[in-house]
Design a protein around this nucleic acid. Structure first.
Lengths: 244, 244
DNA sequence: CGAGCAATTGAATACTTTCAACGGAGGTGG
DNA sequence: CCACCTCCGTTGAAAGTATTCAATTGCTCG
C-alpha cells in the first residue's frame, strides 16, 4: 500500500477526495505502460493526430504553441501527477506541443481504459474531472496573470502558484522547491524576454522576496509575496465543493 | 422546423455534426426557462456558489476576473449559442463573473437535464463536448495572443477570431459584423489601456486593414489581416476529428 | 440643457525589448 | 588534460512600446 500511495497522481487526487485501497490500486494500474523521454525532446507535436494521453509520473514538461514568427508561448507546465493531452486525445488532434523539460517518465493511458474506469469508479471520475477543471482554471489564471500584472508581479505569482501545486504532491513547501526551469522557460511562459526575466529575478532577490538560483526557488518572505500579488490559491485546493 | 433551426446553439452544433429533427427538437427544448438580463448587469458573480448553467440565446456577455488592485481581465466573450458557466455548474462554484454586454436572453439549463440528454442522444453529447473543448482552445489561443503578440496584432487577431465565431452562427462574414463592445471591453480583454486601444484601432484604420466604428467591424482587407497575424482558424472549425 | 459615458488626442513617463558583450559551467574531442 | 564550444545567466545602453495624466469632443438619455 505504501508503494501505491506514492504515485504523484494518487497524492494529488488524494488531496481532493479520500481514496479507498481499491481506488488506489486502480490508479496504480493506470501506470502500466511506461515510457521515458529525455530532457529537451518533444513528447507531442503540434498538429499531431491520433493523440494518446499520458500521466506524468516523473519529471517536468510544458505545453506550448509556436507562432508563425517563431516565438513561442508556454501555456502551462505539468508536474508529476498531471495528465497530458487528455483533451487532445478526446479530439484526436493536438493543438499544441509538449516538451520534456527534464528527463521524464510517463504512463500511456488509453482513453477507453479511462472511460471504463470512470464507469466503475464514480469517485475517481469525479476526482479526474476535478483535476481537469483545475487545469482549466490554471490556464485562466495564467491568462489573467499575463494580461494584467507587471513583470514583477507575474513572476511572483507564477512561482507562488507553482509552489502551491508542488506542495500538493509533496515536492515543495512554503520554504521553496526544486525547479528545473531555465530563464528562457520563464520568459516563454510569462510573455517576457529572457533578459528581462533575469532583471526581474534580481529585483525579487534584492527586495528580499524570493531567490531563484541553481534550480532552487527559495521564498525569502512568503507572506510579503502573497500580499504583493494578491495570491489566492483558492482555485487550486478547493477541497469540498465537488464532494457532493 | 424552421423555428427550431434558428436557435444559435442549433446552428453552432449543426456546423459540427448534421443534426436530425429529433436532435433539433431536443435542443429547442433546452430553451424553456427563459430569463432576460439588461445590459451592464452581472449574470454571475465571482465566488457565487451553487451555480446554474445557461445557454446564451441572444445578446453578448463576457466572463472576467477582477484583480485585488481593481483592474479586470476579460477571459472570454460569449455570443449566442454559447454555454455559460458549464464548468462552474459542475464545480458548484464560479471562479469568475459574467457581465451582460448588451441586453441578453439566456435559457437556464439544469445540469441534470443536460446529463439525461447526453445519455439518450450520444451525438449531442459529442457535439457539446466539442463545443466545450473549442471554448478551452479559445482561451488558450487568447493566452498566446496576449503573451506573444504586439498590441496591433492582438487587436487584429482578436477581431478576426470574433468574426470567425460570429460567422458560425450567421451573425457575421468576411465583410465584417456588428459588435457591441466598447473600447474598454477590448482593453480589458487584450490586456491594454482603453487609450491605447483607441490608438491601435486608428492605426488599423489608417493602414486600410479594418475599421471599427459605431459598433461595426469592417474588414477593409481581410487577406492582409490574416497574414499579418498568422490567423489560423483551424481550432475553431475543425469539422471531422471528433466525428468518429 | 446638463450629466454621463465613450471616443479621441497630446505630452510626459514608465516599462520592456533589443542589441551587444561577457562570465561561468558542463561536455566533447584532440 | 586542456582547448573549445555551447548553453545559460548576467549586465549596460539605446530604442521602442504602452501607460499615465490631462483635456476635449461627440453622443445619448432623462
Amino acid at each position: 500500500m505504501t508503494a501505491i500511495e506514492t504515485t504523484p497522481l494518487a497524492r494529488k487526487l488524494g488531496a481532493f477526495v479520500a481514496l479507498s485501497e481499491t481506488e488506489l490500486s486502480v490508479i496504480s494500474q493506470l501506470h502500466q505502460r511506461r515510457k521515458a523521454v529525455v530532457a529537451g525532446r518533444d513528447l507531442v507535436h503540434q498538429g499531431q493526430s491520433d493523440q494518446i494521453a499520458y500521466i506524468l509520473a516523473a519529471g517536468w514538461v510544458c505545453s506550448y504553441k509556436i507562432l508563425p514568427d517563431g516565438s513561442r508561448q508556454i501555456v502551462d507546465f505539468q508536474i508529476p501527477g498531471d495528465f497530458l493531452g487528455l483533451r487532445s486525445a478526446l479530439l484526436h488532434t493536438s493543438d499544441h506541443s509538449i516538451e520534456a523539460i527534464s528527463d521524464v517518465e510517463v504512463s500511456e493511458v488509453l482513453v477507453s481504459d479511462l472511460l471504463d474506469i470512470f464507469a466503475q469508479h464514480l469517485r475517481l471520475a469525479t476526482a479526474v474531472l476535478w483535476a481537469a477543471s483545475r487545469d482549466e482554471a490554471m490556464v485562466v489564471e495564467h491568462l489573467v496573470n499575463i494580461g494584467r500584472r507587471s513583470a514583477l508581479e507575474r513572476m511572483a505569482h507564477f512561482l507562488l502558484e507553482l509552489g502551491a501545486r508542488l506542495t500538493l504532491v509533496r515536492m515543495g513547501n512554503k520554504q521553496g522547491y526544486y525547479c528545473p526551469l531555465t530563464q528562457y522557460h520563464l520568459a516563454d511562459a510569462l510573455g517576457l524576454t529572457a533578459v528581462h526575466v533575469n532583471r526581474v529575478l534580481r529585483q525579487l532577490r534584492e527586495k528580499g522576496l524570493l531567490t531563484f538560483r541553481h534550480n532552487e526557488v527559495i521564498f525569502d518572505d512568503y507572506h510579503a509575496l502573497t500580499t504583493l500579488v494578491g495570491f489566492d490559491p483558492t482555485y487550486l485546493d478547493q477541497t469540498g465543493p465537488l464532494l457532493s
